[in-house]
């Protein structure tokens, strides 16, 4: 907000006090409220990159739309991928309430200046991956997103409520797909296990590095932007997933994974954080492909965007004449 440019120190501290007070009462901050610049920037980064993740997230599964094994599965997959586009749009819309432009966010994505979730830089090598992504990747996303419905920034929380309602369909369709394959042939069961083996560790990495390596978590939690730490959410996800895997009849590729009665939680191994950082830096299996595809779609669509504007301009002029 520009208020801070002209406000005196006394006015500024009054504004800050009111902001802190709103947060302390667990009330929401709304777009035209005064907010600290750090809060605004953190939100823009988080919401924009969340939006980018949803948009890029269409690609790995979109890969299987034309090869889905039945009309039923194709219709489900189309609906799911359309939802991901919708989630991206809700989130871009929330980011824009902070005064940034959609166009610039898109440009920052295709120039690689802003990131998206690393999970989408892994390839979908078999059709079972569609199921595994629904079950584990969307399952992890639900763990992340449910607490975000109570985030302190109103438009972000409201977008997350819509997203969470739809995410449940995503997880269930994935799990059901895998259940169906597990009731099939030996070969199909092996496909499911192989897919789970590839996605388990990247899914755990979705929660980000351990808490001791996340120095700004405390600030984000104080602002009510973030509600749980990375490690808390990862633990919750592991505890949720183990009985689901047993019901499905698959195992996770972690020899250290076992119930710890003392803690009342599962112990598990450490993800390969060097791999995580490599993927974030752009060296994952599909980083270049994902961005190139998004850039092509954006550039190929430019003439459509321009033509629609020209048409609208002409209609307006005709109406005036």
């Amino acid at each position: 907000m520009t208020t801070s440019d002209t406000a005196t120190d006394a006015q500024l501290s009054a504004l800050e006090a009111r902001f802190e007070d709103t947060i302390a009462r667990s009330e929401r901050i709304e777009p035209r409220d005064w907010m600290p610049e750090g809060y605004r920037k953190t939100l823009v980064r988080q919401i924009a990159q969340h939006a980018h993740s949803e948009i890029i997230g269409m690609q790995p599964e979109g890969n299987w739309i034309t090869r889905a094994p039945s009309l039923r599965r194709k219709a489900i997959l189309l609906a799911k991928v359309q939802d991901e586009a919708g989630h991206g749009l809700y989130l871009y819309s929330a980011a824009e309430t902070l005064g940034v432009s959609r166009g610039e966010l898109t440009e920052m994505l295709i120039e690689g200046r802003q990131k998206y979730s690393s999970i989408f830089n892994y390839p979908t090598l078999s059709y079972a991956d569609v199921g595994t992504i629904g079950w584990l990747v969307d399952g992890a996303a639900i763990c992340n997103q449910v607490p975000l419905c109570r985030t302190s920034y109103g438009p972000y929380g409201r977008a997350m409520i819509r997203v969470c309602k739809e995410e449940s369909f995503h997880q269930r369709q994935g799990y059901e797909l895998l259940m169906t394959m597990m009731q099939g042939t030996e070969e199909q069961r092996a496909m499911v296990q192989e897919s789970v083996n590839r996605f388990w560790w990247p899914a755990l990495m979705m929660f980000g590095p351990p808490d001791e390596d996340s120095p700004n978590t405390a600030q984000s939690m104080a602002w009510g932007i973030k509600r749980n730490t990375n490690d808390d959410l990862r633990q919750r996800f592991v505890d949720m997933s183990v009985p689901q895997a047993e019901a499905l009849g698959v195992t996770f590729p972690d020899p250290d994974l076992k119930w710890n009665a003392e803690r009342g939680h599962h112990d598990f191994g450490e993800p390969d954080w060097d791999e995580f950082m490599q993927v974030v830096k752009g060296n994952g299996p599909c980083n270049a492909q994902r961005i190139a595809h998004r850039r092509t779609a954006h550039e190929d669509g430019a003439w459509v965007r321009e033509a629609a504007l020209a048409f609208a301009d002409r209609q307006r002029e005709a109406a005036r004449a």
């Binding site: 990159q49 949803e54 979730s117 992340n144 990375n230």
Partner: peptide
């Protein structure tokens, strides 16, 4: 990184 970049952790610094 914030894990709560929704669909997986996204960096909050250097961006």
């Amino acid at each position: 990184f914030t894990t709560e970049g929704g669909h997986g952790a996204v960096p909050l610094q250097g961006v």
